[in-house]
Amino acid sequence: MDYTSDNLFAQMGQWLVAPENWSGERGIPMRILEHLGYTGLTMLIALAVAVPIGLYVGHTGKGRVVIVSGIGILRALPTLGMVFLFVLLAGLGLLPPIWALVLLAVPPVLSGVYAGIASVNRDTVDAARAMGMSEAQILFRVEVPNGLPVILGGVRAAVLQVVATVAVVAYINLGGLGVFLVEGTQLRDYGRLFGGAVVIGVVAIAVDLLMALVQKFAVSPGLRAGRAPVRTQDSGRQKAVASAQGGTT
């Protein structure tokens, strides 16, 4: 592309507004779709793996040690290295790099789901059981809705990481927004390089905002009401004083 300026930011701006970059197979919209497609696929697999495990461990408390250390190990893996390792082991194609990204997404989802379920007040769960809820009802009607802020927090963190990291698949010619970074580097086209980076950033922010919105609507208002009880006429007198257990014993 021909720039009319030597200034980096000016080049970036020109690249971003050039109409030819916004159409066709290799245009920005197509790349965004690819990028989000890979992100979605990665997240689907990661959720399918991590959510059931997280729910099981959170609800039963069994296998806590295993998943905590497992999460630690997964977090220590370098994603780019994993992409190439999987490609070397399994060959080119779509799935090897996706598996590497799944390894990136699983720890935040798993720890979010597990911690979300485990964080639900034990008395609430105990009362639910004592009312005659089955274990599945306790899990899905009490623990999941109450753990949702933490669970969604984990998913959100995972999505953000994946959106930012999916760019690596461009190194093995799978497209996505990472293509602009690879091409920009190879062609020394800094407008393209930084423009691509900006697009990735904007997409990441947009996805995160969307997730925040989902979180806002999915979480019960009762959990947000939190520590700000509505004052009533008689509340001054009815302050719960946990220590006021007077008596003669």
Partner: peptide, 13 residues
């Protein structure tokens, strides 16, 4: 069943 802490479900009205 009624217990010391109300045990109400925070997410439900």
């Amino acid at each position: 069943y009624v217990m010391q802490s109300s045990g109400l479900m925070p997410h439900r009205t």
